[in-house]
């Protein structure tokens, strides 16, 4: 007799769980869809998180000066050899010798976005931006000069 009871209970349990499943999927059906229509929405609703690492940049202040002191720590920190700094030593007005940045070359094609360079920088001169549309037709164009 108990097997018959189990059978009936199994029936009821099965139907109940099926109905719960159907209710759940109907909820999703009614929900707002989360698909991004990418090329159309790039100027409207496209949202890329602030901390997304897509490209190394060197922010400039309003006079066009950057904070880089050409110390080369980022170049040394980079595991891929992505950054190449060219610097020269100039004499300042008060007679001290000081390094100045000439060219800050960054190879986007070799970068693996580990953020070690940003962490190494003592003056917060570089950071990652979330500008992600970086596709180009030639490799040479991926080598960027950041201090210009």
């Amino acid at each position: 007799m108990s097997t018959f009871k189990d059978y009936i209970n199994g029936y009821a349990f099965g139907i109940k769980s099926l109905l719960i499943g159907m209710r759940t999927s109907m909820k999703v059906f009614m929900q707002k869809k989360i698909t991004e229509r990418y090329p159309e929405n790039r100027h409207t609703t496209l949202y890329i998180p602030e901390r997304h690492r897509a490209m190394l940049v060197m922010p400039k202040d309003e006079n066009g000066n950057n904070k880089c002191i050409a110390c080369g720590l980022c170049q040394m920190a980079c595991p891929n050899g992505t950054i190449r700094i060219t610097s020269e030593t100039r004499e300042t007005e008060d007679g001290k010798k000081k390094k100045f940045l000439v060219k800050y070359e960054y190879d986007l094609g070799a970068c693996m976005f580990c953020q070690l360079c940003v962490n190494a920088c003592p003056h917060d001169a570089i950071r990652f931006s979330n500008h992600f549309e970086n596709a180009v037709f030639e490799r040479d164009k991926l080598i960027l000069t950041l201090n210009e």
Binding site: V28, K33, I34, T35
Partner: peptide, 8 residues
């Protein structure tokens, strides 16, 4: 099918 999977 797309709507049931929250797609378009």
């Amino acid at each position: 099918c797309a709507a049931f999977q929250c797609r378009i």
